[in-house]
Amino acid sequence: MRQFFPVEDLARDDRFVQTNMAERMSDTRSAVDLQRTAKSRGASNRLTPDRHDASDAARSLMHGIMVGEIQALEGAGRTAHDFDAGDGSEGTIPFELKLDMARQAWDEARHVEISVKLSDWMGTEIGQFQENTVLFEAACSNDPVLRLAGVNRALEGLAIDVFTQMKEFGQLADDPFLEFCEDWMLADEVTHVKMGSDWLRRVTENDPDRRAKALDFQRVVDKLFSFGGARGESEESPIGLARRFRELAGFTDDEVDTIAGMDHDALEERKEVVRLARETADV
């Protein structure tokens, strides 16, 4: 088995069809209202049960969660595998970090189980929607410290936002399983973020350059995971930014503000791309 595993080789059965971020962003249709600015008010795009397409949108998001959990499972498994136990230098990671990654693999395996069951409950078939492999791609750097930043802080941070949104959806809809399950998964994800933050601090204790590089990388991944503003504090974003749970997971206010700012920029950039594409296509 190779030490590092490329995203193109992720193994799936025939039901799954994969895509990547570039392909996704080349789709220039948009659900957002281009006339709106971030400050103006209008109908919310937030994923709540009172949206006319609530169940469809929730199903599509649940499928995204399921494939995201599969990739998180694969990512954690790979980190447990790819690096030898050592003192953290020269491509090694501490033994205890490997153990934590194995534990995370188990947690993510449960999350896949949960999201498969929830998908079934909501009426989604496995592989019904395409799978964006951006999570694994962005998260599986060859530098273990970048993985901690990319997976445990950016990806798991996104998971906190998504689960908070789905938990609220379940609560408002009075769905007896959705809120219950999202709450459990949320507890795990907060743990994973904390774990990542602790290890990032410990492994880079005497190497401020490495730490800075990791945090830079996290910002790049965070912006990517904004999915063109699909996550953000604006009401135009279907998924909110879960400030309270992020705080519980150890993100500082400044860090959350930075992510909120990037989400806002990503949304405006996306709108500009869509606007230009429409002008070009003249529709």
């Binding site: 169940s55 909501m122 009075d174």
Partner: peptide, 16 residues
């Protein structure tokens, strides 16, 4: 059509 999807929509509007 996926019946379970319709069932979920219906529960969402009318109750679980």
């Amino acid at each position: 059509p996926i019946q379970q999807g319709y069932r979920y929509d219906f529960r969402n509007r009318f109750g679980f």
